[in-house]
Design a protein around this nucleic acid. Sequence first.
DNA 1: TTCTCAATGGACGGCAGAGTCTCGTGAGAT
DNA 2: ATCTCACGAGACTCTGCCGTCCATTGAGAA
Lengths: 149, 149
Amino acid sequence: MLLTPRAEYALRALAVLALEPSDGWLPAKDLAERAHVPPAFLSKVMRRLVLADLARAQKGHGGGFQLARAPQRIRVCDVLAAMDFELIADHCAFGWQKCNEARPCPLHGMYSLLKADFRQWAERSTLAVVEVNALSKPQRGKRALRKPR
Amino acid sequence: MLLTPRAEYALRALAVLALEPSDGWLPAKDLAERAHVPPAFLSKVMRRLVLADLARAQKGHGGGFQLARAPQRIRVCDVLAAMDFELIADHCAFGWQKCNEARPCPLHGMYSLLKADFRQWAERSTLAVVEVNALSKPQRGKRALRKPR
DNA sequence: TTCTCAATGGACGGCAGAGTCTCGTGAGAT
DNA sequence: ATCTCACGAGACTCTGCCGTCCATTGAGAA
């Protein structure tokens, strides 16, 4: 896959929250189910999102999670950064410590194109583009990750 | 990083071979040193490239590796496929089994853009674009992965 | 105050992929 | 024929990250 599991889970969780009423709290259990994320692992992901000020958490009765800002103000690159996704631009595909336009490694040309594409995508995409109609019609035969007991 | 280590190593090795005279054989030891790839691991990578008909191998005296075709005929997507890099387009970022234009998941819109960008990059990039001048001036202070004993 | 719900934090286990090691195989040189 | 060089292939270890589990903290309800 193009993203790490953790980064993908974060986007899933935030997408679900973006489809919720902005003033309510969605418990982790429900969030995990709708976002198709392992419940125990989701807490790790959400913790990072809260620390990055992309989501808010509320303990106790009626608590849960909600977005910290409007969906259109949450960029994908912010989410990836919160997940420690290596967006670092100075990584050299050839393994050089110092690789730049002046002293390019053999792969510099092609790799720069990819990095630029990815960077643009991550900076321009926001949670505003989540498909609203999607969650209302669950897939046939699809089931929750864990059945309520 | 955006690629797996194995995929990146493959591109490094092929880039080095592309800069060699096309009729000669470059031993794995030299190849590993120039491409900055762990020597023992390089053999795994090269084996895949040979099986994918992207490189040729020659045993015995004066043997080594060479490209199986002209650099401009080796696309990045061919290399990634040989490394089992998941270029599979039907992966859904939201975890759905069936996710398409007709029934898009919440993340379908943004994720499709990324997949399209990546796919275009991998299909259009070839080894013809490796920087020729790069290898002739090694970085200051750079050293081989393993010193000869 | 007490009970219950729900996030928090840390310790733990498992697994896939990175990276190593060693013996086997084949090809050329002498 | 034999020696040496260099790839081939399998078993092996190690590491990082995914994922789980459980005790703790905090907040609201009764």
